[in-house]
């Protein structure tokens, strides 16, 4: 049987996780190609609509990743993101969306290895879960 290749959209903040992704690249840390980054200035900028749009648009999972608590380039944007993700998880799990399909992590600028691990683990998790419903649904 052909292996399921999930499509994952990642909203990552410019200052921490995007930089960590750069670092992981510079260090040639092998990652699954399933995660596609969208560069945001801050996780606090991630409107819940973006996550919904990605999921409804066929993403099997969404990753949001930014600076560690206390380390936010914009002082506290990540705390705001955490509340929004909490809300989204509450809403979406009720509709059968597995909690693991919306993931929030903190990956600092120097944590290239963390980034690569996060990507690889998430891809494995989602591969195990199988395709998200929306990837097989007519967009409505």
């Amino acid at each position: 049987m052909e292996r399921f290749e999930p499509t994952i959209v990642a909203f990552v903040c410019n200052w921490c996780t995007y930089t960590a992704a750069d670092l992981a690249g510079t260090a040639r840390m092998i990652q699954s190609p399933n995660v596609r980054l969208v560069r945001m200035m801050c996780t606090g900028m991630v409107d819940p609509k973006y996550v919904l749009k990605a999921l409804l648009g066929g993403a099997d999972a969404v990753l949001i990743s930014g600076c560690h608590p206390g380390d936010c380039h914009y002082i506290n944007g990540n705390y705001k993101a955490r509340r929004r993700v909490k809300l989204l998880k509450e809403i979406l799990t009720g509709f059968g969306v597995d909690e693991r399909r919306v993931k929030l992590t903190w990956v600092g600028a120097s944590e290239g290895n963390e980034f690569a691990e996060t990507v690889n683990e998430l891809v494995e998790d989602i591969r195990e879960l199988g395709p998200g419903e929306t990837s097989r649904m007519m967009v409505i």
Partner: peptide, 29 residues
Amino acid sequence: KGCGSCAGACPSGAAQIRHFTEKEIFAEL
């Protein structure tokens, strides 16, 4: 500073960060 915590919170989309507008992000997605 353009961090976007206003845009992330604004339900009507009145607050948007220039160069990171909803239109732009939606199109990227």
